[in-house]
């Protein structure tokens, strides 16, 4: 039987899984970097500059671009294939599995949108055009805007949903299945899906409230705290 190619969906699955795991690693490192925000502008900017001049970062950046592109393309292709496999939809819909498992395309799309905004706000001006020199200042400015912060927080909620399925799914795709270790892996996945976005959201809120202390005082349960 002639097919659409050499087990295409499995190839795309593998690409998505490997790049996805790599991107999770990136998320962790990125989060680690973000925590320098707590140290204030001096340390943060210095660390960012240090990273920028590190020759190794060139390689990582290239890998990252490749990973993002491959991951996105795989996701789009798989989603299109999968939708076409569904055919006619059910009239009576019963959600057999958690919504985020079925809505990877949606969380993926939101993350992609976020990525574009994020690149436009920080990466490109700082890294490429050089418009931004004081990165800490740029971050502080962006998060001073409540809408930007809200968008950022929401994006990371979606990232959490994405990760909740992604971690376990990636190992399944790699063929890792074990009666004992798969449930452990699943728990690790859920932990990461909560911990990683929580870290980013914490810092976003930290920056936001730092710029807008009056919002902090407005929180009823915090009224009276400085």
């Amino acid at each position: 039987m002639r097919g659409p190619g050499f087990y295409s969906f499995v190839v795309y699955k593998l690409s998505a899984a490997l790049t996805g795991l790599f991107l999770i690693l990136f998320l962790v490192f990125h989060l680690y970097g973000n925590f320098y925000l707590l140290e204030g502008p001096m340390v943060y900017n210095w660390k960012a500059r240090e990273l920028l001049v590190n020759p190794l970062i060139r390689v990582v950046e290239v890998l990252l671009v490749i990973a993002f592109v491959v991951h996105i393309v795989s996701g789009v292709v798989l989603t299109a294939r999968n939708w076409s496999g569904r055919g006619e939809r059910y009239r009576y819909v019963f959600w057999q599995t958690a919504f985020f498992k079925r809505l990877m395309w949606l969380s993926g799309a939101v993350i992609l949108l976020f990525l574009v905004v994020h690149l436009g706000t920080f990466t490109v001006p700082y890294r490429i055009t050089g418009e931004v020199q004081d990165l800490y200042q740029a971050v502080a400015k962006a998060f001073a805007n409540p809408w930007y912060t809200l968008f950022y927080v929401l994006a990371f909620v979606f990232l959490g949903f994405h990760l909740a399925h992604a971690w376990e799914s990636a190992f399944q795709t790699l063929g890792v299945f074990h009666r004992v270790w798969t449930p452990v892996l699943r728990s690790i996945g859920y932990f990461l899906a909560v911990a990683i976005p929580l870290g980013y959201i914490f810092l976003a809120l930290y920056m936001f409230f730092k710029a807008n202390p009056e919002w902090l005082r407005a929180l009823p349960f915090l009224s009276g705290v400085s």
Partner: peptide
């Protein structure tokens, strides 16, 4: 595995997105 996977796609089945709805049903 090669032939069966190629056939599955050629016949119009979608791919797996590891939702495990199949196992549940």
């Amino acid at each position: 595995i090669r032939k069966m996977l190629i056939a599955m796609e050629a016949l119009g089945f979608g791919g797996c997105s590891n939702t495990y709805a199949c196992e549940a049903e």
